[in-house]
Computed example of a mutant assay.
Amino acid sequence: MQIPIINTSHHPLPEYQTAHAAGMDVRANLTSPITLKPLQRALVPTGLFLEIPVGYEMQVRPRSGLAYKHGIGLVNSPGTIDADYRGELKVLLVNLSDQEFVVQDGERIAQLVVARHETVQWQTVETLSETARGTGGYGSTGVH
C-alpha cells in the first residue's frame, strides 16, 4: 500500500524497526524540547501530513519502551487519523509517571498502524439474537 505523505520535518519518514513490526515509529518535530511534568499532556508536532486511503484509518499508538521506561502514553489511545484529514499529524502525549520527562526533537514518540475499517448502516430492530453470554458484561466471563 502506498500513502501520499508530505514531510516538512528534517527527520526520516516513519519506519518499521523490524521486519514483522505492525507499527511504524514516528518522531517529534520540535524547535525546542518539551518538558512534561507528571500528569501533564502536550500535543507534539511531527511535521507530517498524510492522505489516508478511503476505507482505512491510521492509528496512533503508544511506544511500549516509552511507556515502560518513562510512563509516557497517549491520552486518546489509539488515536485515529481519518481518510479526510489533511492537517499535520500531532501526537497527544501524557506523562503518567511521577517524574518530569523531556521530549527531544527527533525522538520516536509513537507508532502508526494502518487499519482497514468498515462503514456501518444501523438496522433498528426490536430484539437481538440470544447467546450463551447474554447481557453479562465486565468480568462476567471469568465467573462461573
Results as ranks from 00 to 15, higher is better:
His117Leu: 12
Gly136Ala: 12
Glu15Val: 12
Glu126Cys: 04
Ala110Phe: 02
Ser9Met: 03
Gln123Phe: 09
Gly79Ala: 08
Thr127Asp: 09
Gly71Arg: 01
Gly55Met: 02
Asn7Leu: 10
His11Cys: 10
Pro62Lys: 00
Glu15Ala: 12
His144Asn: 11
Thr119Pro: 11
Tyr85Leu: 07
Asp82Val: 09
Ile81Asp: 06
Pro62His: 00
Ala42Asp: 00
Leu96Thr: 04
Gly136Leu: 15
Gly71Asn: 03
Ser9Glu: 14
Asn76Arg: 11
Gln121Trp: 04
Ala110Ile: 01
Ile6Asn: 08
Val94Lys: 12
Thr8Pro: 11
Arg27Ile: 08
Ala83Pro: 08
Ala19Asp: 13
Arg61Ser: 01
Thr135Val: 09
Gly139Glu: 00
Met24Ile: 08
Val44Thr: 07
Ala83His: 12
Arg63Tyr: 00
Tyr138Ile: 06
Asp25Lys: 00
Glu126Ser: 13
Thr8Ile: 07
Ile109Trp: 00
Asp98Cys: 04
Ala132Thr: 14
Ser9Leu: 10
Ile72His: 02
Pro12Tyr: 00
Gln121His: 13
Val114Gln: 06
Gly139Ser: 03
Thr135Lys: 06
Pro4Tyr: 07
Thr131Phe: 03
Ile34Asp: 07
Glu57Gln: 06
Gly65Lys: 00
Met58Lys: 04
Val120His: 11
Val125Pro: 10
Thr135Cys: 08
Ala67Val: 00
Arg116Lys: 12
Gly106Val: 11
Val91Gly: 10
Leu128Thr: 10
Ala83Cys: 14
Glu130Asp: 08
Leu93Ile: 06
Ser129Lys: 02
Ala19Val: 11
Leu89Phe: 07
Ala21Trp: 15
Glu126Asp: 13
Glu88Pro: 14
Gln111Val: 11
Gln104Gly: 10
Ile52Arg: 02
Arg116Cys: 07
Gly106Met: 08
Pro62Ile: 02
Gln40Cys: 05
Gln111Arg: 02
Gly73Ser: 15
Glu118Phe: 11
Gln2Tyr: 12
Gln104Ser: 14
Asn76Phe: 05
Thr127Ile: 14
Ala110Trp: 00
Glu118Asp: 12
Met1Ala: 15
Ile72Trp: 00
Ile34Val: 15
Thr124His: 09
Gly139Phe: 01
Glu130Leu: 07
Ile52Cys: 06
Gly134Gln: 02
Thr35Ala: 12
Ile81Phe: 04
Gly106Arg: 09
Arg27Pro: 13
Leu66Val: 02
Gly65Trp: 01
Tyr56Ile: 02
Gln59Arg: 14
Gly136Cys: 11
Asp105Phe: 09
Leu96Ser: 10
Gly23Ile: 12
Tyr138Trp: 08
Val54Asn: 09
Ala19Cys: 02
Ala22Arg: 08
Pro12Ile: 05
Val44Tyr: 05
Val75Ala: 02
Ile81Val: 15
Thr31Ala: 14
Leu89Glu: 13
Glu107Gln: 15
Ile5Tyr: 12
Trp122Asn: 10
